[in-house]
């Protein structure tokens, strides 16, 4: 009985706390709908018959539906190829970034060598160098390495992330000294220590950096736009506008191409939302 009254009064208190809660939730619902309507609209347009057009906004969302646009796009365009390119480049960029930043961060955090502070500060300087402002000389450098218009040219310039080193170093610093020392006394090599002990403890930081690197690469526009010339090597952000520009008044087919480009990321987002949100607060606050 007592617990019932207390939970009742607790509820009453909550209601007293914010008399405007209902109004605010309603505003929230309206704003949320405004945010997702364009995306839902895209998905509905993509299943309308090719050539469909209307001035009634509701009609876009009503049947008839068809999936033939998807078949057309998949068969007759390079969208799937670009989707694969984007995925492949993002995946390899992420793996290489994680590998080289974690190795460097481990050395700076756990090993003793001369000029360590100097090297760390040298890496820190990279935080202040805006990639967008060095893209013209970067183009010349990559060209002189014969890597323009190649996967390697897309990937390699993007992997040296100073922010990754800094975040991982501060994470590795937190590994208990006793764990490290007892491993060294047991005759553990540095590489084994890194791979078997320190790295597994740094999973949350690795996940955050991995998610960010992947999303960054997936959405990267400027560098692929400059460095890729062949249609078969386009990534989605570069290929889609080229594809879209061949249609000026027709909605349906280009919208299907955009939907195909977006559905995998939307699904990935729904699955990994928690990790993505955590990753943002983690890296955003750290740097």
């Amino acid at each position: 009985m007592a617990s019932i009254t207390s939970s009742k009064s607790r509820k009453a208190l909550d209601r007293n706390r914010d008399p405007l809660l209902k109004v605010k939730v309603t505003i929230g619902v309206i704003v949320a709908i405004v945010f997702i309507v364009p995306i839902i609209w895209m998905l509905f347009v993509s299943i309308k018959p090719d050539g469909f057009s209307t001035s009634n906004p509701i009609a876009w969302f009503l049947p008839p539906y068809t999936i033939s646009n998807y078949v057309t796009i998949i068969m007759d365009s390079l969208i799937l190829r670009w989707l694969f390119n984007s995925f492949f480049v993002a995946l390899v960029t992420t793996i290489l970034t994680l590998a080289i930043t974690s190795l460097a961060a481990f050395a700076i955090s756990q090993m003793k060598f001369r000029f360590k502070n100097f090297i760390f500060i040298f890496f820190l300087l990279g935080l202040m160098i805006p990639g967008e402002a060095t893209i013209i000389p970067l183009y010349e450098i990559v060209k002189s390495m014969n890597l323009i218009d190649s996967y390697a040219g897309l990937i390699l310039p993007m992997i040296a992330s100073p922010l990754g080193v800094i975040i991982l170093k501060s994470f590795f610093d937190g590994v208990p000294k006793e764990v490290i020392e007892s491993a060294i006394i047991d005759g553990c090599s540095y590489f084994k220590l890194f791979y078997k002990i320190v790295l597994p403890l740094a999973k949350p930081a690795m996940a955050a950096i991995g998610i960010f690197t992947f999303i960054g690469s997936w959405n990267n526009f400027l560098w692929p736009y400059l460095s890729i010339l062949s249609e078969t090597l386009y990534t989605l952000p570069v290929g889609l506008p080229v594809f879209n520009s061949t249609y000026s008044q027709a909605y349906v087919l280009p919208m299907t191409a955009n939907a195909i480009a977006s559905i995998p990321v939307i699904i990935a987002f729904l699955i990994f939302e928690k990790q993505i949100v955590k990753g943002i607060s983690f890296t955003g606050i750290k740097g």
Partner: peptide, 19 residues
């Protein structure tokens, strides 16, 4: 709310521009 407000940010710049 959180998901809806964040969802557009995961889309490619090509997609949002086209939309």
């Amino acid at each position: 709310f959180r998901g809806s407000f964040f969802l557009p940010s995961i889309l490619s710049v090509a997609v949002i521009s086209f939309l």
